[in-house]
Amino acid sequence: MGEVDVQALRGVDLDLYAGEFTVMLGPSGSGKSTLLNILGGLDVPTTGKVIYRGMELTTASQLQLTYFRRECVGFVFQFYNLIPSLTALENVSLVTDVAKDPMSALEALELVNLQDRKDHFPSQLSGGQQQRVAIARAIAKRPDVLLCDEPTGALDASTGITVLEAITRINRELGTTTAVITHNATIGQIADRVVTMRDGRIAEDIRNADRADLQELRW
């Protein structure tokens, strides 16, 4: 069996603005993960351009992309992806050790209210706590962009809210441009902007007049 080309995105034209909190909605297979990967410099589109503050990511070398991720982007994954052999604090240090102008690892943990758990290993933390450590790890370098791929996907509602709390707080307090992927439409209520994708295309791009309060969310 040879390679089969699957077209994940077709004709996507999207501008993300500094400081904006964007939620990307869409069923699975709609292309939202691919879009996020391209935005984060993990993947390169076969055609088209991605420009980040004047730098063309589509023609950047592997090493340039690595440094783009290292300096500009914070990632949060659905399954946390913490290093099991490192404590909470060390997982964050992993980033602060190599970043240019990071906050201290402890500060980052304080932002997600986990300073008390800093010496716990991932196996000693709940799912929500692990995800908050992952967020602390993502924002400790003061990234310009925070990309979250289904950050609440593996969590129950109340735990999910504590995680979203952490993300919105970062967006508010640090002014980090934030994009959250989810298939949970409810989360769209707390964003500045909701982009809905279907079949690799942007189906809807709506600005919220006013963002809902996190405590009002129910799913």
Binding site: G40, L42, Q62, L63, T66, Y67, R69, R70, E71, V73, G74, F75, F77, N81, I83, P84, S85, L94, V95, V98, A99, R137, A138, K141
Partner: peptide, 16 residues
Amino acid sequence: SRELATLRVIGFTRGE
């Protein structure tokens, strides 16, 4: 592989 890929994603170089 998962751990190492994570490190690559958050900005570690291949060498690191």
